[in-house]
């Protein structure tokens, strides 16, 4: 996939003598702005968080795609990457964090533990068997743990999803 295409503003440009006119749909403009500036919440509960940190740091650098501002408070975050095992005791905390995030908000379930309870813990008494029992998930990134490239792919897939959302017109009615 050619990432540079994603940076182009959606719409038609019409050159004029002293500049130009841009015609676009409001949906596209909103989605373009939202998708290219997703602020992730700092949230990691186990080894997947190490890969997530790696994806954030210099080598993989998710800020290339608009994720640079990781926030330590849910009230300023758009995206929560659930990176790691969620135990029964953590579940209410995670739910509260999700509730405190302002709409629109998105969730990425990173790794086997988050998707299903994990390859090791899936049958224990203390582990939530998939974070989608607690909060709705937009993108699942499988792996144990997924490599940073996989997480970046999942995040770009989320951007794709956001870019296809509709707020106005008949399509928005259909989406509801």
């Amino acid at each position: 996939m050619d990432v540079s295409e994603k940076l182009i503003f959606p719409g038609q440009k019409h050159e004029t003598a002293d500049g130009g006119i841009l015609i676009t749909k409001l949906d596209d403009a909103i989605n373009w702005a939202r998708a290219n500036s997703l602020w992730p919440l700092v949230f990691g509960t186990s080894c997947c968080a190490i890969e997530m940190m790696s994806a954030a740091d210099a080598k993989y650098d998710w800020s290339r795609f608009g994720f640079e501002v990781a926030r330590a408070t849910p009230r300023q975050a758009d995206l929560i990457i659930v990176a790691g095992t969620i135990v029964m005791k953590m579940a209410p905390v995670l739910k509260r964090l999700y509730d405190q995030m302002a709409d629109p908000k998105y969730v990425i379930a990173m790794g086997a533990c988050t998707i299903s309870g994990g390859p090791f813990f899936y049958n224990t008494y203390s582990v939530v068997k998939g974070v989608d029992h607690v909060i709705p998930v937009d993108v699942y990134v499988p792996g144990c743990p997924p490599r940073p490239e996989a997480l970046l792919h999942g995040m770009i897939a989320l951007q794709e999803k956001i870019k296809n959302e509709h707020y106005f017109g008949k399509k928005a009615e259909k989406d509801k």
Binding site: S116, Y122, N123, T124
Partner: peptide, 12 residues
């Protein structure tokens, strides 16, 4: 007396 694994789990 409590089993190591969750006996109610059927989906895996």
């Amino acid at each position: 007396e409590y089993p190591m694994e969750d006996p109610t789990r059927v989906d895996k």
